[in-house]
Write a protein that binds this DNA or RNA. Structure first.
Lengths: 337, 337
DNA sequence: ATGAAAGCGCTAACAG
DNA sequence: CTGTTAGCGCTTTCAT
């Protein structure tokens, strides 16, 4: 076994150049002859040398790392994180990699142990926070801590200049247009609209505007109770069907609610999509296997990841705040008439 | 703004102690008076001081970080990673956090850009690799690269001493026992059994043993073609139902296959679970919303995460190779008779 | 229990 | 284009 780590000095000696030349060559500095670089790389390869990230980071002051925090529901382990946030996590890590950044990931949900100070501690160059708006304690803590360095946020129940969101209004318009084109006429909205759910409020506006434009009746948002969206969607449908004149379609504020709605509708024997249309929002993978498969509005995850990451990697760029969405046709809305 | 970073020297001065005392106090060294520690902590708090991870890591040689690589299917972005691996990723990060480790996460799928050398580069103290056995190129690359440092693996299609797996045999026994107890008698197995799928082979053995023990007929494994397990499960059912004497239940080698099977069965008008039982393996979240909801064998994700992480954090411990599983009753198997 | 001093391996400023 | 030099901020002996 080698007694000590191979350093850039060893490579320098083997290649017959100075240590700083090794550093420059391996860092891809343009002011190095290709011939020298080749010699250095060859020497590095034979010696099995790798730049020590610890030393490089100390000296340069940079980390090349992004801290990514996924906020979950209090009391639930990371295994129960929504598929939406997993997908967003994946595309964020991919976008970070595109910019040459690594991703330091943590799942946080419990009050008293939140930690956002990655930049101050020299562990990352910036922070991306994503997760459920339901965990107020987490978002409040983020607001109070005011971590150093650039921050980008998805899912927070507050408005500041760091959030990135789906084009909720436009998505809602697409969703409701789709229902209208299928001939549904009494279209409800499933989801609590209040200051804690700015994304739902935006979707409700798109819903309302579209119905008004078509001269169709607009309902108040039907509140979805509890933090468990699926259960909330189930209950909401029960209440909805008990009404004097129930709707013949719903736009659910998100896919979890829609999945719950689908379950309840099936149990009540309502035929979807023939007699009742359902459309969701989020593009959840679970919607592929529901009964029927869930038609939904999906944000462009790759763009979402890029938008979050670019706030940190390209701080001079004009930040993207809205991510485009598209309609995913599955089976919970009947064909256009 | 402060002109330069607050260092341990600043804290030392403010607290009236030496710099090394600051280091010891904040690192929790036992050889420091509680009184001194309190003074140091107070000073650090007022100055807004945080230990610089870059410097600490360079000096100590440790990183306090685990590299976690999620291997995906070639050509697919991280958004399409199986929910199983997302859940395992989450519980691995949680287990790492329990041991005081952070998680450097990357999603890798493309040949030519695999990277496992986190330990050699001083970016992590160990490596956890998880993902689909289908990406041969990735696993071969891992084998060839032979990265430095401790490694733990989930999902690899090879046998060496680094893997951790579910108790596949025992889980298969539980699954088939459940089908037998419900009165199904011609029980098939859905899944390709070969050297590329050691976990499927183990599940098939549990299937076969259980049927033999009950004196029931054993089928050969029904091959599931292609890398898309859901499509493969659909096709397999089509072939199965075309047989002279089709089975009245299947144990699917995993939930993705089972979900495809459920779809095909529904399309063919076969009533599940009344006339046909289906049970899967993995505990996929999507199975909650399938039609009917999928009964399955779920590994203990928290234990799985701990087993992977402990190979790196507690290298002296006897490594856990098998993770316990449990039966999740949903709706694709009828009640026991 | 605390202080003094050394140095981890590298990048970057400055010469040449 | 390449070499020389000086630290980055901390942990860890070694003293006391």
């Amino acid at each position: 076994m080698r007694r000590t780590r191979v350093t850039s000095f060893d490579v320098a000696e083997a290649a017959g150049v100075s240590q700083s030349t090794v550093s420059r060559a391996l860092a891809g500095s343009p002011s190095i002859t290709e011939e020298t670089r080749a010699r250095v790389e060859a020497a590095a390869a034979t010696l099995g040398y790798h730049v020590d990230a610890r030393a490089a980071r100390l000296r340069s002051g940079r980390t090349g790392t992004l801290a990514v925090v996924v906020v979950g529901r209090a009391g639930f382990d990371p295994t129960r994180v929504s598929g939406f946030h997993y997908a967003l996590l994946g595309s964020t890590c991919a976008a970070a990699a595109e910019c040459g950044y690594q991703s330091l990931v943590s799942f946080q949900s419990e009050q008293g142990s939140f930690s956002w100070n990655y930049v101050a501690q020299g562990q990352a160059d910036g922070l991306v926070v994503m997760g459920t708006s339901v965990n107020r304690a987490a978002w409040n803590d983020l607001l109070e801590t005011a971590p150093e360095g650039p921050v980008a946020v998805w899912g927070a129940p507050f408005d500041d200049d760091r959030w990135v969101r789906a084009s909720n209004f436009e998505g809602a318009v697409m969703a409701v247009e789709r229902l209208v084109s299928a001939g549904y006429r009494r279209i409800g909205f499933l989801g609590t609209v209040d200051s804690e759910h700015p994304q739902f409020a935006e979707r409700y506006e798109g819903y309302r505007d579209t119905l008004v434009r078509h001269g169709l009746p607009v309902s108040d948002p039907l509140e979805v109770l509890g933090d468990d969206r699926v259960a909330g969607g189930r209950d909401a449908i029960a209440r909805l069907l008990a009404a004097k004149q129930p709707p013949d379609a719903v736009f659910a504020a998100n896919d979890a609610i829609a999945l719950g709605a689908l379950e309840a509708l099936d149990r009540e024997g309502v035929r979807v999509p023939e007699d009742f249309g359902v459309i969701g929002f989020d593009g959840l993978a679970a919607g592929v296997h529901s009964h029927p498969p869930l038609t939904t509005i999906e944000p462009d995850f790759a763009e979402a990841g890029r938008a979050l990451v670019s706030r940190i990697c390209d701080p001079d760029e004009e930040p993207t705040r809205r991510v485009p969405v598209r309609l995913i046709e599955r089976g919970s809305v009947r064909a256009p008439r």
